Amino acid sequence: MKMSSKKYNNSDNSQEQTTYKEELSKKIKEQKVVVDELSNLKKNRKVYIQQRNSNIFFLADRSQTLSTSRKELDYLKKEL
């Protein structure tokens, strides 16, 4: 009986890893869109960032936001 429980745990673990990788892939795609959108904005356009766990947005620096988004994308790629 122990062997079957080990097999169950291994398949359970691989399922979790697959789900985690799918989530990472989804986040990477979303982050790529954000980076592309920020990259293609005109210089005079305003950018707002959302406060975490809130519906409040604050004016932000476009180039700083772009830099932060690129770093986040790099981090997500490394995680994958």
Rank of each mutant, 00 (worst) to 15 (best):
M1W: 10
M1F: 08
K2E: 10
K2H: 09
K2N: 12
S4L: 05
S5W: 05
K6R: 13
K7T: 08
N9F: 09
S11Q: 15
S11W: 14
S14L: 15
Q17H: 07
T19C: 05
Y20T: 01
K21H: 07
K21R: 12
K21V: 01
E22D: 06
E23H: 12
E23L: 11
K27F: 03
I28A: 02
I28M: 03
E30S: 06
K32M: 08
V34M: 04
E37A: 07
E37Q: 09
L38V: 03
S39R: 01
K42E: 10
K43G: 00
N44Y: 12
R45M: 09
R45N: 13
R45Q: 15
Q51Y: 04
S54Q: 01
N55M: 10
N55T: 13
F57V: 08
F58M: 13
F58T: 13
L59G: 02
L59S: 09
A60I: 02
D61C: 12
S63F: 11
S63Y: 09
Q64D: 13
Q64S: 13
T65L: 06
S67I: 05
S67N: 10
T68A: 15
T68V: 13
S69K: 02
S69F: 01
K71T: 09
L73H: 00
D74P: 05
D74S: 14
D74Y: 05
Y75R: 12
Y75P: 00
L76S: 00
L76C: 04
K78N: 09
E79A: 05
L80F: 07
